[in-house]
């Protein structure tokens, strides 16, 4: 219980410090509406003269991008990799080595607080745009998709955070991690389904992507919430692979942490 209290406090401090940047999140969310406008225009033009693309109509496709946008602010890692990197580089991490606190759990508590703030603030511009967006929303009617989406969303957040955490830990080996992060972001943008729904890919490529962690970072919960995962069996299979990635990435993070600490030198008093 005392152990839980530590991370609850970290979460509450995270809430306060992220609220300081509320305008940054709000501006970022507003800019994302510009991206949404681009998506609407591009896909609206692509659908001109046809009622469906890959079995989905325009409303379903646009709903996918709206859900994707909301999820980005609620579950995606934003600066966590750089924050971990900074703490290693500046030696701030030393204080955690001397205290009875798990650094992964501490950072995850801060991440959860940050996403709660960014997600809530992202809803504001979306609520303003709601009267316009409402006409384009088409959600699935099957109840099981929403039941499956809950664990999928939680595990997606875990995968997002753990990947960012792992990239941050690379600072034990490399002075600058920005290029690794941006390269990974580019891969994630494609195979996480942010550029286009992955089911538009050739079948073999779609199947291959469903074994990558990127698929479960964003696409999988978005596909569940927008009816692109057609059967409960498919959803269960996805949840199984997603669970595997949660544990596998956590294992990698632990390995990087223990190996990285061996290279780490704490200087100063």
């Amino acid at each position: 219980m005392a152990s839980f209290a530590k991370y609850r406090h970290a979460f509450l401090i995270g809430l306060q410090s992220n609220l300081v940047y509320r305008w940054n999140f709000a501006v970022r969310a507003s800019f994302s509406l510009v991206h949404l406008a681009y998506v609407f225009i591009l896909w609206g033009a692509a659908f001109a003269g046809q009622t469906s693309v890959a079995g989905f109509d325009l409303r379903q496709t646009l709903t996918y991008f709206i859900v994707m946008l909301i999820l980005q602010f609620f579950i995606s890692a934003m600066n966590e990799d750089y924050e971990v990197s900074e703490e290693i580089r500046n030696g701030l991490i030393n204080q955690f080595l001397l205290k009875p606190i798990n650094y992964f759990a501490y950072r995850f508590s801060i991440f959860a607080a940050a996403r709660l703030v960014s997600g809530s603030l992202a809803l504001l511009p979306l609520l303003i745009a709601a009267p316009f967006l409402y006409h384009y929303v088409s959600l699935p009617s099957a109840g099981w998709t929403y039941v499956a989406a809950v664990p999928a969303l939680l595990m997606s957040a875990c995968i997002q955070f753990t990947l960012a955490y792992c990239f941050g830990l690379l600072t034990f080996w490399f002075l600058e991690i920005q290029s690794f992060v941006i390269l990974s972001l580019a891969i994630e943008t494609v195979f996480g389904g942010q550029v286009f729904p992955l089911d538009l890919l050739p079948r073999w490529l779609y199947e291959a992507s469903s074994y990558l962690p990127y698929y479960y970072q964003m696409y999988f919960p978005a596909a569940l919430l927008t009816g692109r995962i057609g059967t409960p069996e498919e959803a269960l299979r996805g949840l199984g692979i997603q669970l595997f990635w949660v544990f596998a990435l956590y294992g990698v993070a632990q390995l990087l942490w223990t190996r990285g600490l061996r290279r780490h030198t704490a200087v100063g008093g």
């Binding site: 692509a46 290029s179 494609v190």
Partner: peptide, 28 residues
């Protein structure tokens, strides 16, 4: 590393075009 990053982003933009035109004949 940065050259690869830029190259990959270019590929992403071209990939989007390739994927959309698998399902449609024209955009505007």
């Amino acid at each position: 590393m940065w050259s690869l990053v830029e190259l990959f982003w270019m590929a992403v933009n071209l990939g989007l075009i390739g994927v959309i035109y698998r399902h449609t004949e024209s955009i505007a």
